[in-house]
Design a protein around this nucleic acid. Structure first.
Lengths: 282, 282
DNA sequence: GTTCCGCATGAATCGATAG
DNA sequence: ACTATCGATTCATGCGGAA
């Protein structure tokens, strides 16, 4: 077991990020407050000022990311007065101007979207997951997210982690394990750019930004153990917890003291439980 | 059986559309040639000039569409030199400037997407289906596309048409049918903005535009029998065929003589078969 | 220990009402 | 006229209690 660092920092990302070294981070995965959402907690950024508000943050992100690293941005524009906002489109164009490469747009298909009925539209059940890079030859570990043939087709990505555990165990084992590994490999396929996760709220007290599966999937795809993961809008701390669990170093930043305290506690608890577990194992 | 008109016109949409009256069309549904795609057949529009090329067409579309009508645009940017093109984003912004309302972005999730493997990306298995309107109070017949509970989430939209037939039959029937109808209604829910159609290529000789299910779904949702449907980039004629089959008047335009001839033949064949069928019925 | 049913709960959106 | 707040609508999911 290596030593994993899990830093939780309090403050405005535009300032706090300046304290991070150049070219340190392997993966940024974050879900910033959307325009006109979360007014209670984050004050709410208007659609008109959103790009202007975001660019100073992304400027720092561009600096701290390794040339081989990846920036994953989960966001979705809302509908208002019968029309979709265009600020996300404008943000993509602005980020390219800032020097980012817009590599890909994944779709997060939310199976359990918010209910409701309106005369002019159906329920919104997808969000954008935008991939940006500094350079064209970034690190990508595609084998890490292969899925069983049927599971992907059926859209049940939940079983993924379970299956992966099985695969990992068999890989590290004997010849018998290797056989199983090969057999599994043959029945595994590469996923595509439509991801299906349910919106789950594991922590009863706090609204989760995205489900654990989302950062987990991208951490598998774009990092290796001991790499550095960054979330400049940590929220309830999903990215930090998953990074810690997966053996990646991570930095999480949030502007709300209560959130930061809560995440710090959860992370510390996990750390101590790992230590005691190691003691027993030794 | 009403008289359905199915016009197939040869020529450049920028010119041919000028011959259509103002405020005639209830639904425009089309899949234009994507930038730098299908060079063999359409000459290929560069990504840089795409918006400029498209706006004269959409200007005419805005004129011929009824205030209560809807414009459905199926499009997807390709990846080039490691990056996604931004011309679709720019097109959305330009169309809004032209006077269109950007009402919604549906995702067409292609379950059996084109195979392939690249070091820096997964298979692209979704396309944008953009909804534009002239006014906020457009016609929308949501009940026409309701789906069985759960089946939508499981992505089996194929059952939809089958179930619809059952419901229609039972509705037109006796009290017993009404019971079934009520029971079905209770087990039906409204869909969301992620559509799952398989990519089918019925016409082996021609470049595939979209599967029949796609125009069919939007024709159900946005038109009633005897309404007018328009496809300014008809291609292999899917929109015209589906409109004809569903009892909607339609106009299809394409610049390629061979395509137009072929579609005309297919449509004429269908017409005569309807006539003979009517004779027998009478 | 399973399975099943009931219930609360969401990054939602629109129309109406109130200031 | 324009903004702020509230109620109504709706469904996949996970939980807890019950059989």
């Amino acid at each position: 077991m290596h030593n994993i660092t899990t830093k939780i920092l309090l403050g405005d990302s535009r300032e706090v990020l300046k304290e991070i070294d150049d070219n340190l981070i392997d993966l940024i995965v974050t879900s910033p407050p959307y325009a006109d959402r979360r007014k209670n907690t984050y004050g709410g950024i208007s659609t008109e000022k959103y790009v202007e508000w975001f660019l100073p943050v992304s400027e720092q992100l561009l600096r701290v990311l390794k040339p081989t690293g990846t920036f994953i941005l989960n966001i979705k524009e809302k509908a208002e007065n019968g029309e979709r906002s265009t600020y996300v489109l404008e943000l993509i164009l602005a980020l390219r101007k800032q020097g980012w490469l817009w590599t890909e747009e994944f779709i997060w298909h939310k199976k359990n979207s918010y209910p409701g009925k309106w005369p002019n539209r159906f329920r919104d059940s997808w969000e954008r997951v935008l991939q940006f890079n500094k350079a064209r030859d970034f690190n990508m570990y595609q084998e890490a997210v292969m899925v069983p043939v049927g599971d992907w087709a059926n859209g049940r990505l939940k079983n993924l982690s379970e299956t992966d555990k099985i695969r990992d165990n068999s890989k590290s084992g004997s010849g018998f394990g290797k056989n199983i590994s090969n057999w599994l490999k043959r029945s595994m396929v590469y996923p595509n750019n439509v991801l299906q996760f349910a919106t789950v709220c594991n922590n009863k007290n706090h609204s989760a930004t995205f489900p654990e599966e989302l950062p987990e999937w991208f951490i598998k795809l774009f990092t290796q153990p001991n790499d550095w993961v960054l979330d400049p809008f940590l929220g309830s701390g999903t990215t930090s917890e998953v990074s810690q669990r997966m053996g990646r170093n991570s930095i999480g930043i949030d502007i709300i003291p209560e959130y930061v305290e809560m995440v710090k506690e959860k992370v510390a608890q996990k750390e101590s439980s790992i230590f005691s577990h190691n003691k027993i194992a030794v």
